[in-house]
Design a protein around this nucleic acid. Sequence first.
DNA 1: GTTATTGCAAAATCTTTGCAGGGTG
DNA 2: CACCCTGCAAAGATTTTGCAATAAC
Lengths: 154, 154
Amino acid sequence: MKYNKEKDSVMHIFTSYLERKGYRKTHERFAVLDEIYSVNGHFDVESLYEMMKTKKYAISIATVYNTIELLLECKLIKRHQFGENTSRYEKSFECSNHDHLICTACGEVVEFWNPLVEEIQKAAIVSTQFEVNYHVLYFYGLCPKCKSKKADNA
Amino acid sequence: MKYNKEKDSVMHIFTSYLERKGYRKTHERFAVLDEIYSVNGHFDVESLYEMMKTKKYAISIATVYNTIELLLECKLIKRHQFGENTSRYEKSFECSNHDHLICTACGEVVEFWNPLVEEIQKAAIVSTQFEVNYHVLYFYGLCPKCKSKKADNA
DNA sequence: GTTATTGCAAAATCTTTGCAGGGTG
DNA sequence: CACCCTGCAAAGATTTTGCAATAAC
């Protein structure tokens, strides 16, 4: 378990969350959080489980799902459904509220950020009277690589 | 099979699509499209299958999935994943490129439209060099009803 | 007549659940 | 030492697949 500042912070947040809720602080739960914040990019439950299999706290898939649920609740991770039948997740501590472009050819995911999303949200709230807590914005298409591959074939 | 102009149009589009691809024009395929364009709002595969069970062309769930795939390809329907583990669909013929608000309490889905999404898309294309074909924008929160219910409890 | 498509059931995939045993508080 | 959490395996839920029978062309 390598030390870094970000990981220290999220461990602290998770600890507080568990205490506040009266949940137990088990090795398995911290091992999952540690693993998630040790890698970059998006992941799914299966790959997380596989990565942990060889580690000190190799745990069961049921516990992975259980812990994912807790981490979603305290907003240390985000859940995505990019169009496949399996959910993908990403860490979300202090990460700006970015959105995603997804390549429908190779599956690559690229992030971007644009303040206009806030404007759209405000307008939507006015017209529908919803209370909005979060949003999801995905653009689907071809990444530069797959775009030029297509051009070459044509 | 009630007649209406919209249904006539989508039947025509589907026919052309099948012919162009050399696919067969089966009763089952048209029955699925007819059923979809006979009802309003979003639906999932299970509910579509249930609705068709009692009709003339009651068909198997495998054929429903098969036909859904074709209708996605020719863009007569859209697929959504609103955060559950099951996909939901909606007809998409001549329906403006709207987006969605989803109530996380009761599941209600409300549509809205905002031209700023186009601006964001343009900016994202410039910065990432993606080719964008379509997008998905969901705002999650509480509908007016669930919002006031929450206020009453507090 | 050929061969794509259907229907059925079985399989595959992802996620949840029940329960006995173990670890946290 | 009470009882929440884990691990396992079984069950659920959704979607896909294999194959014989059927229907489109």
